[in-house]
Amino acid sequence: MNDACGRLVRMTAAGPSDGTRRARPKGRDAHRAKDSAATRNDILRAAARRFAEHGFAHVTLQDIAQDAGVTPALVNRYFVSKRALFELVAQAHVDEAQPLTDVGEFASDLMAYWQDVDRRTPALALVRSIDLDGGKLLRHELERRVRGHWRQFLAGDPEAPAKIRLLESLTMGLGLFGIGALLGEEESLSSETLIAMERRLALMIEACLSD
């Protein structure tokens, strides 16, 4: 994640009046840094879950703070603003693109992504916040996560624009409506249904890529 949007407070210890410095107990700074990182991660996780469920406009810093077990002031101290926190959530969980060598494996990975409650939070948060800046951030993340990779893969293909649109529709539609993440319907899917969906998803991807 991009830590530039975060803001940590530097803690310093005052020395005694004679100008000498007190010796710090061993491990105190390391323990403090560990606690700080854990708190920051707790806030990010709570924010991701909230934004994914309700969208940017319907989440407050108080909501996030309550879920993370901290105060709203501490959330601001680490992340400056709700918008900065949202942007960090939106940019999270970006895996490095791997060459497409097996469509079945790609379909399996895509199914796994949408069934992972934590990994899919950026996608859900962005979709539920599509009115934020006219969807500019959503379009940016779609380009970075989906369109850009397929554009490179299909470079030189005269039907690349059509294929990319279809592949993007499959990618997003699978999770939002196929898995049911947008409407909270994923628990109603049996293992047999998920296996059948994965098999047919691979067939649809192959059809999109074929000439």
Score class of each variant (00 low, 15 high):
Met1Glu: 11
Asp3Pro: 13
Asp3Cys: 07
Cys5Asp: 13
Gly6Leu: 14
Leu8Phe: 15
Val9His: 13
Gly15Thr: 12
Asp18Trp: 05
Arg21Gln: 13
Arg22Asp: 12
Arg24Val: 15
Gly27Cys: 03
Gly27His: 09
Arg28Ala: 15
Asp29Gly: 13
Ala30Trp: 12
Ala30Pro: 06
Ala33Phe: 03
Ala33Pro: 02
Ala33Lys: 13
Asp35Ser: 10
Ser36Asp: 07
Ala38Asp: 15
Thr39Ala: 10
Thr39Arg: 11
Arg40Cys: 11
Ile43Ser: 05
Leu44Asn: 02
Leu44Asp: 06
Arg45Lys: 13
Ala47Asn: 01
Ala48Gln: 05
Arg49Gly: 13
His54Ile: 04
Gly55Cys: 08
Ala57Thr: 10
Gln62Val: 14
Asp63Asn: 10
Ile64Tyr: 09
Gly69Arg: 08
Thr71Ile: 02
Pro72Gln: 08
Ala73Met: 09
Leu74Ser: 07
Val75Met: 09
Val75Thr: 07
Val75Phe: 06
Asn76Arg: 12
Asn76Asp: 14
Asn76Glu: 15
Arg77Tyr: 14
Tyr78His: 10
Tyr78Ala: 10
Phe79Ile: 11
Arg83Phe: 13
Arg83Glu: 12
Arg83Gly: 09
Phe86Ser: 03
Val89Phe: 08
Ala90Leu: 01
Ala90Gly: 04
Ala92Tyr: 01
Ala92Met: 03
Val94Met: 07
Glu96Tyr: 10
Glu96Met: 06
Ala97Tyr: 03
Pro99Trp: 05
Pro99His: 04
Leu100Arg: 04
Thr101Gly: 15
Thr101Asn: 14
Thr101Leu: 10
Asp102Trp: 01
Met111His: 00
Ala112Glu: 05
Trp114Ala: 01
Pro122Ser: 09
Arg128Met: 07
Ser129Asn: 00
Ser129Arg: 03
Asp131Val: 09
Leu132Ala: 05
Leu132Ser: 01
Leu132Asp: 07
Asp133Asn: 05
Asp133Phe: 11
Lys136Trp: 01
Lys136Ser: 11
Leu138His: 07
Arg139Met: 09
Arg139Asn: 07
His140Val: 14
His140Trp: 11
Leu142Glu: 08
Arg144Lys: 14
Arg145His: 06
Val146Gly: 07
Val146Met: 10
Arg147Cys: 11
Gly148Ser: 06
Gly148Ile: 06
Trp150Asp: 00
Arg151His: 13
Arg151Trp: 09
Leu154Pro: 02
Leu154Ser: 07
Ala155Cys: 04
Pro158Phe: 15
Glu159Phe: 04
Ala160Ser: 03
Pro161Trp: 01
Ala162His: 10
Lys163Asp: 01
Ile164Leu: 04
Ile164Arg: 00
Arg165Tyr: 11
Leu166His: 12
Leu166Tyr: 08
Leu174Asp: 02
Gly175Lys: 01
Gly175Arg: 00
Phe177Val: 12
Ile179Phe: 00
Gly180His: 01
Gly180Met: 00
Ala181Cys: 09
Leu182Ser: 06
Leu182Ala: 09
Gly184Thr: 05
Ser188Cys: 11
Ser188Asn: 13
Ser191Glu: 12
Glu192Ala: 15
Thr193Ile: 08
Leu194His: 00
Leu194Ala: 03
Met197Gln: 06
Glu198Thr: 11
Arg199Cys: 10
Arg200Pro: 03
Ala202Ile: 05
Met204Cys: 08
Ala207Pro: 01
Cys208Trp: 02
Leu209Trp: 06
Asp211Trp: 00
